[in-house]
Design a protein around this nucleic acid. Sequence first.
DNA 1: GGCAAAATTTGACGTTGGTCAATGCACTCC
DNA 2: GGAGTGCATTGACCAACGTCAAATTTTGCC
Lengths: 243, 243
Amino acid sequence: MVKIRSRDSNFDCVTCIMRKRSDWSVLGHDEVTLLAGGQSSYRYSAGESVYSMGETGDGVYCVCSGTVAIRRLDAEGNSVLLQLAYPGDTLGYEAVLTGEPHRCNAEALGPANVCHINTPTVKTLLDQNPGLGLQFLRRTVASLDDAQDKLVHHATLSNRAKLAHLLLILMDRYGRRTADGTSTLYLPVSRRDLASMIGARHETVSRIIGRFETDGIAYFSGRSVRIPQVNALVEEIRPQLVG
Amino acid sequence: MVKIRSRDSNFDCVTCIMRKRSDWSVLGHDEVTLLAGGQSSYRYSAGESVYSMGETGDGVYCVCSGTVAIRRLDAEGNSVLLQLAYPGDTLGYEAVLTGEPHRCNAEALGPANVCHINTPTVKTLLDQNPGLGLQFLRRTVASLDDAQDKLVHHATLSNRAKLAHLLLILMDRYGRRTADGTSTLYLPVSRRDLASMIGARHETVSRIIGRFETDGIAYFSGRSVRIPQVNALVEEIRPQLVG
DNA sequence: GGCAAAATTTGACGTTGGTCAATGCACTCC
DNA sequence: GGAGTGCATTGACCAACGTCAAATTTTGCC
C-alpha cells in the first residue's frame, strides 16, 4: 500500500469522477472541499489489506478503482467472502457509526485505488448533511437485501444452482459477449473464494465445474470461463432442496 | 387486525414507554407531537399480516408488544424466516426509503400491538432530524451484521450446530432458568419456521430434535423445550463442515 | 529460469440430510 | 362430535456433498 501525494489532482475528491456515482454525490460544493481536506489516497496491490476484523474504525474508505473483497472469518479461521466492493462503493462506515471494531476484513483483489476519509470529517459531514446519512442508509438497506437473498438461496438451492447463480452475477460485471453469442468471463476470485461465496467446499466447486463442462454449460481454464449459452445457466437455477 | 381508537392514551406516541427504547428516542418534544399526529395503533391476532411482499410501502411500523416474523418467499413459495421483530423495533422503512415494494412479509406470531406511521410524517422527521436517519442506519447495520453472521454459519456449521445455536438465541428472549439449574423455553415458532431459519427441511429438524433428546441435550414437548445444561448446547456449536 | 508454496483437481469413501410416503396429533369449523 | 386441515413425527432410500489423501498445475519470488 502506497500513499499517493496529496497534491495530485487525479486523486482529489473535488475532481474525482467516481464521486458523482457514490454516496458522496449528495454533498454541496463547500462540503466537497471539507471532504477533500479529510481525505488521503492510497494505492493497493493484489492481496493487500485495507482493514481487518477487530481493528477500530478510523474512518471510511471509498473505492476509486479495482475490486475490494469483504470477508468474515469464524472462530476456526474459515473465511467467507461476503461481498465484492467496486468503484464508488464506500466501506468501513459500520465501524465508524457503531464505534465497534470492524467485523470484516477488506482486501484488494487486484491493483486498486482506495481513499481514506478520517472519522472527524465523516461525522461532521453526517451532522451537516442529512442526505449523506440517508445515502449510507439506502446503501446498507441494499446490502441487507442482498444478504437476505443469499440466505434464501442457501436455504433452497443446491450448490450447483448457487454456483450457476453466482456466475450470472459475476457475468454482469466481469463478463463480455463475443460476436458468436458466447460469453466469456474472467473470475476476480479463486476457487476457494468461489466456494465460500456459495457455502460449499472448494473440492465440491471443482467437481461442479467438471460437471458444467461435461454438460456443455461452461468451460473453465484457470480464471477464464467461456459460456456458450447464458440461458443454460439460468436454467440451472431451480429451487430443489438437495443434500 | 383491529384499529385502536385514536384518543386512547395507552396507545399514543407521546406517552408510549416503548418509544424511549426505540429509534424514535432521538426525537425532541415537538417532533414527538408530529409523530403522534401521523400514527395509528392496531391490534393484530396470531397469524395476521402486517404487510406483504410486493406491496408498496405506505409508512413504517413500530412494534409495541408481541413478536412479528419477517419472512421472505422465493419463486417456488418456500418461506424463509429471516428475523424476529420485538417491541421497540421499527419495520418496513426499507420500502419507504427505496420507494421499492416490500421485499418481505411481516406477520404477527401472536397477539401484538403495532403502530403505523405514514410516509409523509416519516419523511418530514427524517429531513428535520438527522439523528433519526442515523438511528435507522445503526439498526440496519446491526441487521446486516446479523445476516452476515448467519451466512457464515450456513457456510460452516452443520444443521445440528445451527439448531443448537438458534436455541441459544431464542433462550435469550424466551427462556427461563428454573431453580435446579435447568432452563425452559417456549418456542415462538413452528418446526417449519425453525427449519427455515437454519436452512434445513422440517423433517431434518424433527430428527435432530430426536437426537438431542436421546443425547440428553434438550427435551421437546410441542413448543416447550427443557434444557438441563445450557452449556451442552454451546458445546454443539463447533464448525465442522458436513453434508 | 528455477525452486518453493499455494491452488486446483481427482479419487475413494462415509455421512448428512433431502425426498417421498405413511401415520399420528392438535385444532378449527360446522 | 365428526370431518377436515395443517403440523409433526417416523421410516426407507439414496443423492449430494463433506472428508481425507494424493497427484498435478499454477503462481510467486529470487
